[in-house]
Write a protein that binds this DNA or RNA. Structure first.
Lengths: 338, 338
DNA sequence: CTGAAAGCGCTTACAG
DNA sequence: CTGAAAGCGCTTACAG
């Protein structure tokens, strides 16, 4: 592959001049410029980004570590991140942690070794020493969706409390009183918050959330199935299952079907995270929708601000309830349609 | 961030010795080794992969350009690619072309500039000059799923012909005679092949595939909707719609619902590409499943073989029919269960 | 076993 | 406006 030296030789100028032309430096004569451009064209020359990065100490690459690529929520997040990054002149390198702290660390390490300009992460756990150290050492970093308390890093996330209250109002209006939740891992902020918000919303109606109605999931479909089976074996099973993410909802649906029960006739089901497929499931699922695209874009903007030395702050966006048919007949006060 | 010089100073050795320790070079004294390792630990040193890449002319990174990250098929492919690559000591940088040739070119260019060791691509179109030139110039390259005829690059793909024949047998057995297909873009190999396989399979039953039963889609949900609407407006609408990918199937489902029709009672629906959600749609969708994970792994192995100078060859894997309920009552000879 | 030195492909003060 | 030169952080023959 042709290097800058070859171009310089071909154009009859120094490599410095070639570099200046390539970087749109103002002080280059028109003549030199055209000769360089001609040589570039003739040789099919493309600058070596590796060499440039070493010299400038910038890679124009952002790292994104997400918890699970197979989760459509994160996939949509990744897409919006890449879009915004591209618009700002960065490319993004995605690492999939698969909800495994060790894999998450592997990707953080690889990304850091590759000297990405900044790191976007949705942590799977409470934070490894590696990640904590990176944040402390001043690596530009931003948390998206999930975050780690006590670390001084901007957080771009959704506040689902109002939407959870709307959901509980909807369920209560439908006559449901025994409500259960499939929680996410306690090590994640979203895992904890969603249970908290649910419990708080129930309290407003004088409803308790007993321990037997809190199932411990891990944001994966299989755990949703397992927890739901446990719920259904209870002497007094819940009338509603609220799953803290879209994949556990799928598992819950499986478990309910396997029992020969029907949603919403025999049991109601609702989800945190709305995904396109929820319109097509049987029945369509009532869900809490996050502004995923906006989340990704805001996260990139915050990170790039940090990288380029501008101040950046945390952003919290509201979620909203999307009522469909999985909890029973939509009430008069439905908030949205599929 | 500490550099190799800092480590050398701290350990009281030369940078050459540090480098040797880091790269497990045999000729290093035990004493030097422990001093270097201690210094590395003390400084929290991590080698700069950018500098290493410049020197060794290897990045240990693979580029993967896929047509659409929001498509669960490609997302699963990407996951298996990353897994196998990681096992072989490579990381992968994903570029999402969003079915847009210009975006595809953008990613190929960026990846090439970053000097990835090899490129895995599932082309959106017939191949841009850039990609053709890269292949010709000897960039290690492998096509997955889709490929470009006439380019001398190994192809790792699925042969769906047998499965399409099984599907047609299933549909014919159910009494269906008017069968239509929502095709993918003619510029993609998978777009063409699936229509060809379908037509061929129909011919075995003496059934023609008239032009009016071939709708032109683009592998995106919206096109599935549009084409299905056109089918339904025909004087003699088809009894079956076969969508050439999972997203167009979703669009078809929407269009059918919007008309107030039911699957499979009023019209049957089948898909190419099986995804976990098809078990949960209303009704569960009969689909042709690709061995996606194996495809991704085989593609990485072929690419790494090329990169490391071993011979590599094309691989074709069979797809299989998964019968569910979207085409009517499962026949006796159902091949699989959800 | 070890170190001095060259060199990977760039960018960028510095001098002219 | 232009070029010679230094230097980014590594690796690796070469000599000892």
């Amino acid at each position: 592959m042709a290097s800058i030296k070859d171009v310089a030789a071909e154009a009859g100028v120094s490599v410095a001049t070639v570099s200046r032309v390539l970087n749109d430096h103002p002080s280059v004569s028109a003549d030199a410029r055209t000769r360089v451009l001609t040589a570039v064209e003739a040789l099919g020359y493309r600058p070596n980004a590796v060499a440039r990065s070493l010299r400038t100490d910038q890679t124009h690459a952002l790292g994104l570590v997400i918890s699970d690529v197979l989760n459509p929520y994160f996939t949509e997040l990744a897409r919006s991140v890449e879009e915004e990054a591209r618009a700002l002149g960065y490319s993004v390198i995605i690492g999939n942690a698969d909800e495994r702290p060790d894999l998450q660390d592997h990707h953080v390490r690889t990304l850091l070794d590759r000297r990405i300009d900044g790191l976007l992460v949705s942590p799977t756990d409470g934070g490894s020493p590696l990640m904590l150290e990176a944040a402390r050492a001043g690596t530009p970093m931003v948390f998206v969706d999930r975050w780690i308390p006590g670390v001084d890093v901007p957080v771009i996330r959704t506040d689902g409390r109002a939407a959870v209250r709307d959901l509980v109002a909807h369920l209560h209006g439908l006559g449901h009183r025994r409500l259960a939740i499939i929680a996410g891992p306690a090590a994640t902020t979203t895992g904890q918050e969603r249970v908290g918000a649910f419990r708080e919303a129930l309290r407003a109606y004088g409803i308790e959330l007993p321990d037997s109605y809190i199932g411990q999931g891990d944001f994966q479909a299989e755990s949703g199935r397992r927890v739901t089976e446990e719920f259904l074996r209870l002497p007094e099973p819940p009338e509603v299952v609220f799953a803290a993410d879209n994949l556990m909802t799928l598992g819950a649906l499986d478990a309910i079907r396997a029992r020969g029960m029907r949603v919403p006739h025999d049991i109601a089901l609702a989800a945190f995270d709305d995904v396109p497929w929820f319109v097509h499931t049987d029945p369509p699922i009532t869900a809490i929708a996050q502004p995923t695209g906006e989340l990704g874009r805001a996260a990139v903007r915050a990170l790039v601000d940090r990288i380029e030395g501008r101040p950046s702050t945390s952003v919290t966006l509201p979620a909203r309830l999307v009522v469909r048919r999985s909890c029973g007949e939509p009430s008069q006060s439905r908030r949205s349609t599929p």
